[in-house]
Design a protein around this nucleic acid. Sequence first.
DNA 1: TGATATTGTAATGCTCCGCATTACGTTGTA
DNA 2: TACAACGTAATGCGGAGCATTACAATATCA
Lengths: 99, 99
Amino acid sequence: MDSLRDPDRKPTHPGEALREDVLPELGMTQTEFARRLGVSRLTVSELLHERRRVTPEMAVRLGRLLGTSAESWLAMQNAVDLWQIRQAEVIDVEPLDAA
Amino acid sequence: MDSLRDPDRKPTHPGEALREDVLPELGMTQTEFARRLGVSRLTVSELLHERRRVTPEMAVRLGRLLGTSAESWLAMQNAVDLWQIRQAEVIDVEPLDAA
DNA sequence: TGATATTGTAATGCTCCGCATTACGTTGTA
DNA sequence: TACAACGTAATGCGGAGCATTACAATATCA
């Protein structure tokens, strides 16, 4: 499970899961997928290319359409977000323990 | 645990936890808290009043300072976000099962 | 009590993000 | 070959997070 994964490894972006697994499984085009989600084709395309984040609303849409939990999509996105921040930024916050 | 809570009940906003539990526990002022987090006093104030969401970066800051997991703060925020969307919006997405 | 610290809040300005729409070129396919 | 699907750029809009500044109200303490 996730808790046993290498913490330095970049987590799977939700877009990758949609692109690699979900869409092929459904045998559905991006255009059709976008239509059913009620968003534009561009929105789906950019999400699949991992250029856009899964928003809470998008998570609800995905959950509704696919019969999965919105939480799981958001959790995937969170993992990516946190990984990116920890990699890129230098957040200098001193832990209170050090006091 | 959370999974057993009433799904219709509004989840606890992270700001509430900070305001009700964390800050009092630490006996720390908002001003000092903001300084240690490396954000403005206004940012903390609005978060405590639940007028602002915990961003991924803020979650990292909180985790660092308090020695807790950033994930837990984000999870709290997710719960609020999803609840709000499900309450307020009408996302008309037909489940694929219905096909 | 008087000075100082803390807090709530409004106003401004900046930047970034999500999204729709439109448009155009490429590629795959019936 | 005509059409569908896709990648992608441009434009515009609205909203969110954040800093800074400022002012008033309240709390605390010497």
